[in-house]
């Protein structure tokens, strides 16, 4: 009889150890990866990356902010492919209104993003269509509108807005958005509710979480957040073209997965996924460019790395059909 108890305890321990090893790897691997990639690229480019750090990181702000919204969506088990088009539309709105009033332009940009999020939310929550189908549709729809609006000439932002550009401002704004997001996610029931929905929607509902309302609001929120990212984008580039925000959705998805986020969301997500992932993606991207690789080669390498990370982090136990 005593032998039985010992084996039972051992199995318990083993299971727990295995689980904690996995969660440790989920947290550490992206950070270690970030450091290694950063060092490797600096060696390969003879320190150019460190010297051009501001330039390298100039890409990271938009990715950081907009991937936070998608992080919330993915935590509750959804997906969003319309982020690039949201950024494009919001950029056009901000540029067009910037000649009247900068504050108005920013508010309108955020509202435009939220409005597209609302459309996603309506079809996803009220009409019960899978989120990736809905957002692929809105991605094409609004990409079309962007191309229509910018076909002849890009929409330029007024000097009122572009004159505000400074690196400290970008850093501060990005940091503020992220810190607010972090506090809400980590220290209020907002984060817990999202994780519960991602881990088991029916059970979450039976525990009193307003699942439909939460799902609806989160798409609107993600749209609004990317609307704000559009402001950062316009500050940086000064205009909105037919290409604004193109492929942003893929960047975000890759960044989050590189950051260690399980695609199916749920209990194992970590806010750090957003930050580490965004930096990892930007460093990787910039490094490949600096090495003078052609675009196809860069994409090939990115694709391989993406696949490897998805393979490592896929939470196979809870992987169901993404909502």
């Amino acid at each position: 009889m005593p032998t039985k108890t010992v084996t039972a305890a051992e199995t318990d321990d083993e299971a727990m150890k295995k689980a904690s090893r996995m969660s440790l790897m989920r947290t550490l691997l992206p950070i270690v990866g970030l450091v290694i990639i950063f060092v490797i690229f600096n060696i390969l480019t003879h320190g150019q990356m460190i010297q051009g750090l501001a330039l390298t990181f100039s890409d990271v702000y938009v990715t950081l902010i907009s991937s936070m919204g998608v992080f919330f969506i993915m935590t509750m088990g959804g997906l969003d492919f319309s982020q690039g088009s949201i950024l494009g539309i919001a950029s056009i709105v901000i540029c067009a209104l910037s000649k009247y009033n900068v504050a108005l332009a920013v508010i309108a940009g955020v509202a435009a993003g939220a409005a597209i999020g609302l459309i996603n939310a309506f079809f996803y929550v009220k009409r019960k269509i899978k989120s990736f189908i809905v957002t692929i549709c809105t991605m094409f729809l609004f990409r079309g509108i962007i191309k229509y609006l910018t076909s002849n000439t890009p929409v330029a932002a007024s000097a009122n807005l572009t004159n505000l550009y400074s690196v400290p401002l970008l850093v501060t704004l990005t940091a503020i958005v992220l810190i607010i997001g972090f506090i809400f996610f980590r220290f209020t029931r907002f984060g817990t509710d999202l994780k519960a929905i991602g881990a088991g929607e029916t059970a979450a509902k039976f525990a009193g979480i307003k699942t439909d309302k939460t799902k609806f609001l989160i798409y609107v929120l993600a749209g609004a957040i990317t609307g704000f990212a559009a402001f950062i984008n316009v500050l940086k580039v000064g205009s909105a073209t037919y290409n604004s925000g193109s492929m942003l959705e893929t960047k975000i998805l890759i960044a989050l997965v590189l950051g260690g986020m399980p695609i199916s969301g749920g209990a194992k997500v970590n806010f750090l996924n957003v930050v580490v992932g965004s930096f990892l993606y930007v460093v990787l991207n910039r490094g490949l460019q600096m090495m003078g690789l052609t675009t196809p080669t860069q994409q090939l390498i990115q694709g391989i790395i993406f696949l490897v990370f998805v393979f490592i982090f896929a939470d196979r136990e809870s992987l169901t059909v993404i909502k």
Binding site: T192, A196, A199, G200, A204, F206, S318
Partner: peptide, 27 residues
């Protein structure tokens, strides 16, 4: 399916309906 959120910790499962109460006045 309906009682426990199976892929979540015991802690989260016990706390879920009482989160507001646990958070208290500070939220």
């Amino acid at each position: 399916n309906e009682s426990v959120v199976i892929n979540q910790s015991i802690k989260d499962n016990i706390c879920l309906p009482s989160l507001d109460q646990i958070a208290g006045k500070s939220h």
